[in-house]
Nucleic acid binder design. Structure first.
Length: 303
DNA sequence: AACCTTTTCAACCGCATGTCT
DNA sequence: GAGACATGCGGTTGAAAAGGT
């Protein structure tokens, strides 16, 4: 295989690779980071011809990329509504909850986080959550770690969510956040009356500035509130009275308007470590079944 | 300032599944 | 039904950025 760096108008060039001798003139495919020109080309062709048939699109657009690469670039970066930047506390809470239910079903989890991609969720889990499990000297699938999540991190997230809500209310001087905690599952992504999400301004400290992008903002297009129908009904609490959002969709919808993004682990970790390192602390939990830290349980806990 | 280590995340890979002929 | 091709998914990689010494 013959790889070489191919200069371009981008900040950094992408290498090209010869796939096989049989592919003759069309054999050179670019790999690595996408250039601004490539992004523009891809976006223009998707706008003109729609998504799908990626191999054909790549060929027609003159992009020396595989169809797979084009699809990935579009879905993870160029697609309208893609959000970038740190996860809000609500999003973090939702990820923890949904992962406890579904495991590494990243695309399924991401589907409940408007504008977030499976890649982002997956990266979050691997870099943040697994890192802290490692610090605890346990596996993310272990009871010990689940208990730590349930008793320290998730309550902290909820506290933070409440604090953010209160701050938002104070700022808006409306004095009413009851809609945030409505037990009704009617708050769906497709709501046409959804106000412009505040998350457009929520990207923390330039976290979206790394990759070459034609778009300086961290949202590449219109909000994706109505992007898809969400199976929110499966998250409704099972008849119990809960203090928080009744559905994950609701949780995320509200969370996406949160203006802050903080890794709550960082805030509570010294405490967590102190407790966890004190022999085999079990955090005083009894057996709660397979779903150790589902949202329904968390919301019912006194803070 | 220079070097080294760690963290982050975009992009790639292989495999599974779906769709078309 | 079989084969070819397209698409989607989850795991992994590697380079840039950030942090530490």
């Amino acid at each position: 295989m013959d790889a070489l760096w191919n200069g371009s108008s981008c900040d950094w060039p992408a290498p090209t690779v010869i796939i096989s001798d049989d592919d003759a003139a069309a054999a050179e495919l670019r790999r690595g980071p996408w250039t601004v020109d490539e992004d523009a080309l891809l976006a223009a062709h998707v706008a003109a011809h729609g998504e799908g048939r990626w191999n054909e699109l790549a060929r027609d657009a003159g992009l020396r990329r595989t169809g797979k690469s084009c699809r990935l670039r579009w879905l993870n970066y160029l697609r309208p509504g893609v959000r970038r930047g740190g996860f809000t506390p609500r999003e973090q809470l939702l990820i923890l909850d949904l992962h406890s239910r579904w495991g590494n079903r990243w695309s399924k989890i991401a589907a409940h986080l408007p504008g977030r991609t499976d890649n982002e969720v997956k990266n979050y889990w691997r870099t943040r959550v697994q890192k802290h499990a490692k610090q605890l000297h346990c596996d993310v699938g272990s009871r010990r770690f689940h208990d730590a999540m349930r008793n320290l991190w998730m309550p902290r997230l909820i506290e933070r969510i409440h604090a953010d809500d209160s701050a938002a209310v104070a700022a808006n001087a409306t004095g009413d956040v009851s809609h945030f905690y409505s037990a009704s599952p009617s708050h769906e992504l497709s709501s046409s009356s959804q106000p412009a999400p505040a998350y457009r301004n929520a990207a923390p400290n330039g976290s979206c500035a790394r990759a070459p992008s034609p778009d300086a903002s961290c949202v590449t297009g219109p909000s994706s509130w109505s992007r898809e129908a969400s199976p929110a009904s499966q998250f409704q609490s099972s008849g119990s009275t809960i203090a928080g959002p009744s559905t994950s969709t609701e949780l995320c919808q509200n969370g996406c308007s949160s203006a802050t993004s903080v890794d709550m682990f960082d805030e509570s970790w010294s405490e967590l470590l102190a407790r966890a390192n004190h022999d085999d602390t079990d955090f005083g939990l009894g057996e709660t079944g397979d779903n150790w830290w589902g949202l329904e349980d968390i919301w019912e806990q006194p803070l």
